[in-house]
Design a protein around this nucleic acid. Structure first.
Length: 804
DNA sequence: AGCACGCCGACT
DNA sequence: GTCGGCGTGCTC
């Protein structure tokens, strides 16, 4: 009886979304284990592709002849049993292909790169040999790069068996090496060498002494040797020539924090509520219990996390700490690194592919035992996890909005159950789902209602912008806010101003005829970008010149409308001429490190005012900021989405937390056209509990989560008719599958119906029995497969965060 | 995804 | 008659 490998192949389609059985050549049998990547022949031409071994079986019921694995890519499995199991579960949960999930779990560089080659195997025309092959017998076959005529000539040659096409699976993962040196002689042998030196050869003697301190197996980086001994490269090279040492390549890690100045930190003393929370978490050690740590901004959640991590590390376990991308600031990383040193690995989007790969390897080898990272870090290959923390658990960035559409919270819960490790969800403004679960006793609620040292919460003023408009000229700044900013400048204190830009942008509109400049591909207004002096589409990247004349009525009264950070900065500069303003938005922070630089400069009082978008709302901590202004609280309130109130409340609460964290009292101004809205009023009163109850009633009445599950089904096609037609078919079919308590909304065209010349239609389902629906939805995806050939794309999004 | 098989229109 | 269009189905 022969063992066979089950391989998930790198072909992301519905029909290939299953393991294929391959024979294992005898020479691989000892080495191959599940979780390794392999190269296998697949399909008619037996082109080679990458696959993941997910298991072994003894017998296959496949009728045809089994092919054999071509080669093994990895020396050690890149995915352990846990992650393999997780991938199967997650693929099903998120309606994604298993291969997509497996790829998502690994650093980018481990994704296979395929190259196609054509090789001459018969006599061919000399002209062709020169013009296409440049005299070589094999060239890369890149159809996208080649002339169409060349491609068809090559296909023709292949048909006549004059050339053959082959495929190669490339591995982009590169291990970085530096030069190291290794001693080659024994202590006595070195003494003899020393005796043979002339009296003037002091440096060589130093080198010998150094080499004598090493063990024969030691490999020391050449750089280190130079630093320790003060010897130059020339001497080391002499040592090599004389046979004292060997230069060997040493594997090194690209350290994303190498430029950081890390100061060791020690545990801080805890307040009573912090100590209670920590005790509860520590007591849950070894059980898959979920906590909701609801602590106001400034209550010291991070310190609780760090001490809880220290506790599991002391038991020889590992810890995973998830934070939103935006909180992965250098300050935060310094704090964690300062506490746990080299045991910490960080994973975030700012890393280069190489750095990410190296951090991943440090985790995989067990060298890093604490992982801090954004969403995808939830797949970190840690063994023996003792604790999982998810900070700011309500953050929307934990949900991936492309395939596989998973929520990191679900993955964290799965891993918590697998490892019998507690999961701590932390937030000042928990998501309704989580808070509701705590209410039902599914999660244990830990409350930290007080700020450290009982700093009072800042006072929040709600400014009614409707009155402002009546009383004066249109402006982004109310009289009160402006006065407050000026007051701070005169006192040498700092202000943070936030422009809420969710679903909002500045666009060009004709004052005479109302014409709005739109993207030719996407049906949405183009956004004005002053830095490039152009109009850009936020969806497809289309760019064109700023119009000076209305294309519709030729009027010159075409100008921009709405508010961008640049425009606000300009206005503020005019209103307060001497103010030093630093603007932080997606444009100014695009460059690597720009973010950190600006914040550091602001922290050093180089500026009076920090003006920015949502990104400034999270986790920044400046002691001299005593004023926070939210310029337009409404833009997130007006979204056509049931999350609107929740998002607004979260944002206002979070940004309020930026004011007055030290001994100085903070003040917050919220400008709004909806001063009576409960999300704004309750944020003003720092009353999460009442917001939770109010919002729960709204959700209950409207049959939305957490009372109902939601699913968004989206279809897109280049032809609007096709997309609409298909979706109504889907709608009719689904109706028959749904139980009586399920509600179907749509199909409707998406609010931005056309993106990149594709038309989008969607159906939203609200339902209570997930089991029944899941089967129907899986079937739907399978049925949609045949339509995919006709240009129809269908996607299913469980618990979508946007319904737009 | 990529390849082969297969069944209908315009040509060496 | 056949060469080749791309619609359909399969890949261990």
């Amino acid at each position: 009886m022969e063992e066979l490998a089950q391989v998930v192949v790198d072909v992301p389609t519905m029909q290939t979304n299953q393991p294929y059985t391959y024979a294992i050549p005898a020479e691989f049998r000892e080495r191959l284990t599940p979780g390794m990547r392999v190269v296998v022949p697949f399909g008619k031409g037996s082109r080679v592709i990458q696959g993941f071994v997910v298991g072994f079986i003894n017998q296959s019921d496949y009728e045809g002849e089994l092919k054999a694995i071509t080669s093994i890519v990895d020396l050690y499995p890149v995915l352990n049993d846990e992650l393999l199991d997780l991938s199967a579960w997650l693929a099903q949960l998120s309606f994604a292909f298993r291969i997509s999930v497996l790829q998502t779990m690994l650093p980018n560089v481990m994704r296979a790169k395929y190259t196609k080659y054509v090789r001459v195997i018969d006599e061919i025309d000399e002209d062709v040999l020169f013009s296409i092959f440049h005299g070589q017998d094999e060239i890369e076959f890149d159809e996208a790069q080649m002339e169409p005529a060349t491609v068809s000539k090559l296909l023709d040659l292949r048909k006549h068996n004059q050339v053959e096409v082959s495929y190669q699976v490339g591995n982009r993962a590169r291990v970085k090496t530096t030069l190291g040196i290794q001693p080659l002689l024994e202590f006595e042998a070195y003494e003899e060498e020393r005796a043979g030196l002339t009296k003037t050869a002091a440096k060589q003697s130093t080198l010998i002494s150094y080499l004598q301190t090493l063990k024969p197996t030691d490999v020391i980086a050449k750089k280190t040797v130079s630093e320790v001994t003060g010897l130059s490269d020339a001497i080391i090279t002499t040592g090599e020539k004389k046979g004292w040492l060997a230069k060997v390549p040493m594997e090194t890690y690209r350290d994303p924090m190498k430029d950081y100045d890390i100061q060791a930190t020690t545990p801080l003393e805890l307040q009573a509520t912090q100590a209670e929370a920590l005790a509860a978490i520590n007591a849950a050690d070894g059980t898959a219990k979920t906590f909701l740590l609801e602590g106001v901004t400034g209550s010291g959640k991070t310190e609780v996390y760090l001490q809880a991590i220290a506790n599991v590390l002391a038991e020889g376990k590992t810890a995973l700490m998830l934070v939103p991308e935006i909180s992965l600031t250098p300050q935060m990383m310094r704090r964690v690194r300062g506490r746990f040193g080299a045991a910490v690995a960080v994973l975030h989007s700012g890393l280069s592919d190489g750095e990410r790969f190296d951090e991943w390897r440090r985790i995989e080898r067990g060298e890093a035992r604490v992982v801090v990272g954004a969403r995808s870090a939830v797949f970190a290959p840690l063994e023996n996890i003792g604790l999982i923390i998810m900070d700011e658990e309500h953050e929307t960035t934990y949900k991936q909005d492309e395939n596989p559409r998973y929520h990191a919270r679900d993955v964290a819960a799965w891993r918590s159950a697998y490892h019998n490790a507690p999961l701590v969800l932390g937030s000042a403004t928990p998501s309704l789902e989580s808070r509701a679960r705590a209410e039902k006793g599914v999660y244990e609620l830990l409350l930290m209602p007080n700020r450290i040292n009982n700093h009072p919460m800042p006072t929040v003023q709600v400014v009614d912008m409707r009155q402002e408009i009546i009383n004066g000229p249109e402006s982004n700044f109310s009289t009160d806010l402006l006065a407050a900013i000026q007051d701070r400048i005169s006192k040498g204190e700092q202000s943070v101003l936030m422009l809420n830009r969710r679903g909002f942008s500045s666009f060009v509109m004709c004052r005479d005829c109302g014409f709005v400049l739109e993207c030719p591909n996407c049906d949405i207004g183009l956004t004005l970008h002053m830095d490039t002096k152009s109009m850009k589409c936020h969806y497809c990247g289309h760019e064109e010149a700023i119009p000076h004349q209305c294309p519709n009525c030729q009027s010159n009264a075409i100008r921009y409308y709405g508010t961008g950070t640049q425009k606000v900065e300009q206005e503020l500069q005019e209103l307060i001429p001497g103010a030093k303003i630093v603007r932080m938005d997606a444009d100014t922070t695009r460059k690597k490190g720009a973010h950190d630089k600006m914040l550091t400069a602001f922290g050093n009082h180089e500026y009076d005012i920090l003006l920015g978008t949502q990104m400034i709302a999270k986790g920044l901590d400046f002691p001299d900021v005593t004023l926070v202004g939210v310029l337009n609280a409404d833009t997130s309130l007006g979204l056509p989405d049931f999350h609107a109130a929740e998002r607004t409340f979260q944002l206002l609460t979070q940004v309020s937390g930026r004011a007055g964290r030290a001994d100085k009292l903070g003040e917050v101004f919220v400008q709004t056209f909806n001063p009576e809205h409960y999300a704004i009023k309750l944020a003003q009163m720092h009353d999460y509990e009442r917001f939770f109850r109010t919002e729960m009633q709204m959700r209950h009445a409207a049959k939305y989560p957490p009372y109902y599950f939601t699913i968004k089904i989206q279809a897109s096609h280049a032809e609007e008719r096709e997309a609409a037609l298909k979706m109504s078919q889907v709608g009719r079919w689904l109706k028959n599958q749904l139980g009586t308590d399920a509600i179907m909304l749509g199909p409707t065209p998406r609010s931005i119906a056309r993106i990149n010349n594709r038309y989008y239609y969607q159906i939203v389902l609200k339902y209570r029995q997930p089991e029944e629906l899941d089967a129907a939805l899986s079937e739907l995806l399978e049925r949609a497969q045949s339509e995919a050939k006709h240009g129809l794309q269908l996607s299913i999004d469980r618990e979508p965060l946007s319904f737009m």
